[in-house]
Design a protein around this nucleic acid. Sequence first.
DNA 1: TGCCAATTGCAAAATACTTGCAATTATAAA
DNA 2: TTTATAATTGCAAGTATTTTGCAATTGGCA
Lengths: 124, 124
Amino acid sequence: MNAIAKLKNASYKLTRPRRIILNFLTKQRTPKTISEIYAGTKRQIDQASVYRTVELLQSLGIIYDEYLLDDHRYYLAESPHHHIVCRHCHKIECLPCHVEFTPPKDFTVIAHSLSLTGLCTSCS
Amino acid sequence: MNAIAKLKNASYKLTRPRRIILNFLTKQRTPKTISEIYAGTKRQIDQASVYRTVELLQSLGIIYDEYLLDDHRYYLAESPHHHIVCRHCHKIECLPCHVEFTPPKDFTVIAHSLSLTGLCTSCS
DNA sequence: TGCCAATTGCAAAATACTTGCAATTATAAA
DNA sequence: TTTATAATTGCAAGTATTTTGCAATTGGCA
């Protein structure tokens, strides 16, 4: 099911802000913060609505969030994978990665997030 | 090198707020947020100083920070490991876990962080 | 096309975090 | 042990980030 189908399926409208943010995020190669989304959509959308839209899209599993180790919350439209961020210039790269764990007995695991930090060649 | 040696070594003083926060964090079994540290030290320390102290201790590698998937920043005194947090009641548990990745060619990997979220038995 | 609930933009509020500065304190030298 | 001094603190104000109430607008359906 694609993004628009998921929205309709949950009986949400496809509004202008939702269309613009969805379109913006699907074009990005790396995860983006709220303020990058706000700036990247040329401030066509009020920031309160950016927060509300991103929250909704995330709750429907259309976009995903991630904390990278520079202490900011990022959003991405692709299915969640892993990233490394440069401590100095904040450059972000995708990272092929394998995580193994024995699910804890008294928890149902819903999601996991892995991020790495380091220095990229031009900063080190 | 223990916490106090690390402080002295970097020529920082062992002040009352630093001692209290260090003592508080080393007693905790699970990571704590700024406001939990503030409350847990019985507000003996101004909140600006809590922020400053935690930032300093972290920069010296005496404590560590972690974002759990309930969107809050946590601090812990033990060497960093992994946690799962309940989406509903925010209960936290430690998680034995193994992470494997091929270090990216153009990055020096400094640290990694893995966190999981789910529902604990009493919430599901 | 027109209706109506959902959604938006705006402004204000709440929360989270940072900073400048005078008063205080930990350390080391006397 | 006392004193000098630079580091550190608490306070209060400032900035940044996120949330909320509400009137105006809009998307989807009849």
